[in-house]
C-alpha cells in the first residue's frame, strides 16, 4: 500500500511539473518569437521561473520518496 501511495505522489508530481513547465516555456518561446533580441533577458527570467515552478512538484516527489521508503506515514 505504501508503494502505491508513493508511486501516486511521484506520478502526480511529474504530471503537474510537466504541465507547469510546458505553460512556462510556451510563453517563453512566444516571447522570443515576438522579440528575438530579448532572448538573453528572457532566458534568465525563464530559468528563475522554472526554479520556482519546479519547487512544489519536487517537494511532492521528496515526500513521495519518503513514503515509498517507509520513513513517513
Amino acid at each position: 500500500m505504501t508503494i502505491l501511495a508513493g508511486g501516486i505522489m511521484i506520478a502526480f508530481a511529474a504530471i503537474a511539473a510537466g504541465i507547469g513547465n510546458a505553460l512556462l516555456f510556451s510563453k517563453y518561446l512566444e516571447g522570443i518569437a515576438r522579440q528575438p533580441e530579448a532572448q538573453g533577458k528572457l532566458f534568465g527570467q525563464a530559468m528563475i521561473a522554472v526554479g520556482l515552478v519546479e519547487a512544489l512538484p519536487i517537494i511532492a516527489i521528496a515526500f513521495g520518496i519518503l513514503v515509498l521508503f517507509g520513513i513517513v506515514g
Binding site: I58, I59, A62, F63, I65
Partner: peptide, 10 residues
C-alpha cells in the same frame, strides 16, 4: 526551506 531541501534530496 522545503524548496531547497526537496531539490537536493530528490
Amino acid at each position: 526551506a522545503a524548496r531547497l531541501w526537496a531539490n537536493i534530496f530528490a
